[in-house]
Design a protein around this nucleic acid. Structure first.
Lengths: 244, 244
DNA sequence: ATAGTAATTGGAACGTCGTTCCATTCATGT
DNA sequence: ACATGAATGGAACGACGTTCCAATTACTAT
């Protein structure tokens, strides 16, 4: 708490300084941006477990105490890093092709970002109601409205899409944790499929069936297929006979 | 690895002993079951962070070394605890009312279990391709087949449902972490909604709209609505005009 | 310019965790 | 009775997030 107050005061002072004096800071001066940038580098290069304040301090040639002057704790650091990645996705979604298509390209953009930075999936997941999550909700919800989804169904439709996206994001992150660095992906999938075929076919017929499909499947396509499924469901609301 | 081998040997010996001599174990003897049971108690009563080997050892009046004789590591412990909870859900799903309804009641059973034990959501999430996950896949996939979902669409439909369920599970777990114990839920939701209304209405119109709905919404109903949405989408496949 | 004040730094130190190690106890088959 | 190996419990290790603090640096008012 003491930290928070100091933080705020510092921000104000910094802002003021930025207004009055243009650019005189030491080239090696620490700042929240530089710290977040270094954190992203470590996360991307060496994975979630590699991000420690010691590693970060070493990379920035400083001590952990100095980092804590700019960042409240590890959570805030991860949130800032996540916001940075999500922010990039939000910028480039064109609405030319209609709201449905915009939702698809936005979702795919999220997927690609999380695929490239799996730790984003983990954090988006662990800390709900973050700023990044609000952006996602807004991006999707607004377009659902444009799609003509009726008032009462909006909340449910939006949360279904967001929860689905989060689910995939989390799975991606978990897989990345499981197969670190440049492990041979298809080989690993093959191993999993093989272990599935060793299960009792009487008890697990569906899993057996999946095992044959697992090798030649594309995560990205499958993700989009799920989005389309939900969009189709949203479109079908009210006019479709209930599946039972 | 050394541990693993010892483990296996011990299991065999235990099994053999169980076969030859019926019940002579000390009443206070340690066992994997007793350990898992104690772990579940701690997780339920005090939350995910409270489960440490020290706390576990204290509760079982032993040392952490003794626990490691029965359990390889914390991950295995959590997996066993998760399996125990999921196992209960799997048992009581009636298929009388058709596969669609069976999927609904199964999904609701999962939701309720994870709602009651939020840490299950966290772990299901962190470690994919677990035994519990296979059970879930099988339960859903088999019924999708019974529903008449065409061969090519099965994998995608199943993974969409599972990913959605996982997404909700993770959010539930995150919320439970955020509002520990018996925090006043509606008050907390109200606070979140209030913070949302303070955002710029021009930039976040949809979030503003959500804020009004947030207080009187039922997670469980919303979860089921999402399941229905996906099922409707699955039913609509191939005959619906694309939403765009 | 200079002294005084506040921001910022770097690294030592604290407490907690998962895990490993190991001396000791206990039950068993011979 | 004794030898063997399963099982125990607690000390110790290394790594982490975080806090603390003495030293340094940058800025302000004089």
């Amino acid at each position: 708490m003491k930290m928070k107050i100091r933080q705020i005061k510092t921000q104000q002072i910094k802002a003021q300084r930025a207004r009055t004096r243009k650019s005189e800071r030491r080239t090696d001066a620490l700042s929240k941006e530089r710290i977040v940038e270094a954190a992203i580098d470590i996360l991307d290069a060496e994975g979630e477990n590699a991000l420690t304040f010691r590693a970060l301090a070493a990379r920035l040639s400083t001590g952990s105490g100095a980092i804590y002057w700019h960042v409240a704790d590890k959570n805030e650091l991860l949130t800032a890093a996540t916001d940075a990645i999500i922010g990039r996705v939000l910028t480039d979604v064109a609405d030319d092709a209609g709201p449905g298509q915009a939702i698809r390209t936005f979702a795919l953009g999220l997927f690609d970002a999380i695929d490239a930075h799996p730790w984003v999936g983990t954090h988006l997941f662990r800390e709900p109601w973050q700023a990044a999550m609000l952006e996602i909700f807004e991006a999707i919800g607004g377009r659902l409205q444009a799609l003509g989804v009726p008032e009462e169904a909006l909340f449910n439709a939006g949360s279904a899409l967001v929860n689905y996206i989060l689910g995939v994001a989390g799975q991606n992150a978990a897989n990345a944790r499981l197969l670190p660095q440049g492990t041979d992906r298809s080989a690993a999938l093959g191993a999993i499929a093989a272990s599935w075929t060793e299960l009792d076919p009487a008890r697990y017929p569906f899993v057996h069936h999946l095992a044959t499909k697992l090798s030649d499947h594309d995560d990205r396509e499958q993700f989009l297929a799920g989005i389309d499924l939900i969009l189709a469901g949203i479109g079908a609301i009210g006019r479709t006979d209930r599946v039972s």
